[in-house]
Computed example of a mutant assay.
Amino acid sequence: MSGPGDFDAFWRGRRATAALVDPCPRVGGVVEERDGFRIHEVSYATPGGRCGALLALPSEGVARRGFVVGHGYGGRHEAGADLPLPLPGSAAILPCAPGLPAFGNRPGVPSDPDGHVLHGIASRDTYLIGDCVAGLWGAASALLELAPSLDGDRLGYLGESFGGGIGALALPWDDRFAAARLTVPTFGNHPLRLTLPCTGSGESVRTHVRRHPEAVEVLAYFDAATAAARLRIPVLTACALSDPAVPPPGQFAVYNSLAGPRRLEVLEAGHIPYPGEAAERRRLGRATEEFFGRWLE
């Protein structure tokens, strides 16, 4: 998918603006210690304002590998679901997207997915998803400042659902990342996505576009499959055959568009419980360890 003629220029401009912002990270006390990590609440600066996050540092020794970990549209309430990390001796920052609970709440920004995904959609420059992408870039900057032992161009990214979609949008423009896993990523192939009913935030977008068809022009700049065509680092993508919240054709569109080394793991379902889910998640975990072990060593 090629997207608008100035797609690359738009995102390179957003990335350049974000790079000028000193993250000025602020670290709170330890809120939890588990799985070999000390977990702190942190905040950092981005062009759209300060973002909240969790910071996971090894309880012993220095960090040798770093990860930025995105989240789903439910927001981020705790770190437990994202720990332990795929590789030993790692540190991670787990940002919360602007506007989403519990660390990203902002006055005037809807915290529910249906409202959040439409906020500022009248213009590509005001659409909130752009600030969410910038939040990932800022998280990487904050992590590298807070864990100076990390290699500044060997970060890994993990993102699921909403986090997978904004990860695909963020990664092509940031050469600090060396590998990524995108799980059931959203925002893939908007023209097709707008034809597919779902139970997720995409349904809110479909309803809005029926009333405001001009929004299609804005969405074209926030298509995860279009961005994936610019993504040349190794990417492991986990796509579901059935998913009521994120239509599978959009997920597979992200995988099929990837321009670099890629690996596909197929899940039976996404966003719903199903028999065999635990076993599939364990299989995906093993594949993730193998994948990052190969590309981040």
Rank of each mutant, 00 (worst) to 15 (best):
P101S: 13
D82Q: 05
D131F: 06
V109W: 08
P98Y: 08
E78W: 03
A134P: 00
G74Q: 09
V133F: 08
C132A: 15
H116L: 15
L128E: 13
D131H: 12
P101C: 12
P113C: 02
F103Q: 14
P110M: 15
H71C: 04
C96H: 00
G99V: 10
D112F: 13
G75R: 05
R124H: 09
D125G: 05
N105V: 15
G72F: 03
G120E: 13
L83P: 02
H119I: 00
G89T: 11
G115T: 09
F103S: 11
D114Y: 07
V117I: 15
G99C: 10
G70F: 02
L100N: 10
P101E: 07
S90L: 04
P113I: 06
G104T: 08
S90T: 03
H77I: 05
D82W: 08
H71D: 02
A81G: 04
P98A: 14
A122T: 06
L94Y: 12
P84S: 08
P95Y: 04
R76S: 01
G115F: 07
G115M: 09
D82F: 13
A134V: 00
D114V: 05
P84G: 06
V68M: 01
C132E: 11
S123Y: 06
V109F: 08
H77M: 08
L118I: 11
R124T: 10
Y127L: 07
G75Q: 01
Y73M: 08
D112A: 14
D82H: 06
S111C: 12
